[in-house]
């Protein structure tokens, strides 16, 4: 199946000469949730802007559904919805008017029933006649989402949809994104909340200084780069490691209550078996054990801090 989005050799040099994107190639699969991560100024918004038509590319192409977003912009853009990073909304218009406007702007005939459903989904129905400027920031973000979905796009870009959003709205947003995915919508989102990418994404891309430095299945990424920790809780604390365990790589933690063993899941021999044998021989009384996997955040920091 053809990818929903095909990005080829995309680069962007802004008027001041700054290179925000440097030769990005990326395919977004149909129906996936793709999380684009990267520090401030990495080029995420630029990449999204070029895909949606708000920024012009210096070189390269973006195909949406096989349609060139520049040469075939009408057909391509009709398939794309964008929730921008900045909260740019009308002020004096009502919620209903602004969402209906967006649907028309994207070339769709009026459909009050659909708009009603959308506003209900986003808990905006009660506010439909309210002027946008009287809404709170989180509500305005919902309005932007409603506008982006008003023309029933097949590809949705969410540029930091949960920045400055409370826990409840964040949950709602996640649910909405999953619902959209279930309907077959392809979703590209950027976020600085790694847990969000971890929770939502099927695949993750990391962009740094205008270059895509990694694209990976989330699970694969976690497996590949994740170090795992085995934590053993002792029945009674010890002051120091018994000499028989000194060379196993165990660390004493939690005031002598826990033993921590870090290992690489990918390694052929994780050393876990040997460790457990040594442990049994040492006579320490292990009350419980658990494992911890490194979060995406740790992986991400590690990637970005490595010299590019």
């Amino acid at each position: 199946m053809r990818p929903a989005l095909e990005i080829r050799n995309l680069s962007k040099r802004y008027a001041g000469g700054f290179e925000a994107l440097r030769g990005v190639d990326l395919d977004i699969r149909r129906g996936e949730i793709f999380a684009l991560l990267g520090p401030n100024g990495a080029g995420k918004t630029t990449l999204i802007g070029i895909s949606c038509g708000t920024i012009s590319a210096t070189t390269g192409t973006v195909l949406a559904d096989g349609l060139d977003t520049v040469r075939d912009y009408k057909a391509a853009r009709a398939r794309i919805g964008l929730v921008p990073q900045e909260l740019a909304t009308d002020a004096f218009e009502s919620v209903w008017a602004t969402v209906s406007f967006s649907r028309g702007l994207f070339g769709r005939p009026p459909n009050p029933a659909f708009i009603e459903g959308l506003l209900r989904d986003l808990s905006l129905w009660d506010k439909r006649d309210q002027r946008i400027m009287t809404l709170s920031g989180g509500m305005k973000r919902r309005v932007l989402i409603a506008k982006a979905l008003s023309h029933e796009p097949q590809i949705l870009f969410l540029d930091e949809p949960t920045a400055g959003v409370d826990v409840e709205l964040r949950r709602d947003m996640w649910q909405l994104v999953r619902r959209l995915q279930a309907q077959g919508v392809t979703i590209v989102l950027t976020t600085h909340y790694i847990d969000e990418a971890e929770e939502m994404a099927d695949r993750i891309g990391v962009i740094h200084r205008g270059k895509l430095i990694l694209v990976e299945e989330k699970a694969e990424l976690m497996r590949k780069l994740g170090t795992k920790k085995l934590i053993l809780e002792l029945a009674s604390p010890v002051a120091a490691l018994p000499p028989t365990l000194a060379t196993t790589g165990l660390d004493l933690a939690a005031g002598g209550r826990e033993l921590v063993y870090s290992y690489d899941r990918q390694a052929g021999d994780t050393g876990v078996a040997a460790l457990l044998a040594a442990l049994a021989a040492s006579g320490l009384d292990v009350a419980d054990l658990r494992t911890e996997q490194s979060s995406l955040e740790e992986i991400f920091v590690q990637l970005v801090e490595e010299p590019a």
Binding site: C52, G53, T54, Y73, K74, A75, A76, R77, A78, I80, L82, P84, A88, S102, L105, F106, G107, K147
Partner: peptide, 8 residues
């Protein structure tokens, strides 16, 4: 941004 991203 909306006008620019619309099929217009």
């Amino acid at each position: 941004f909306e006008h620019l991203s619309a099929p217009v």
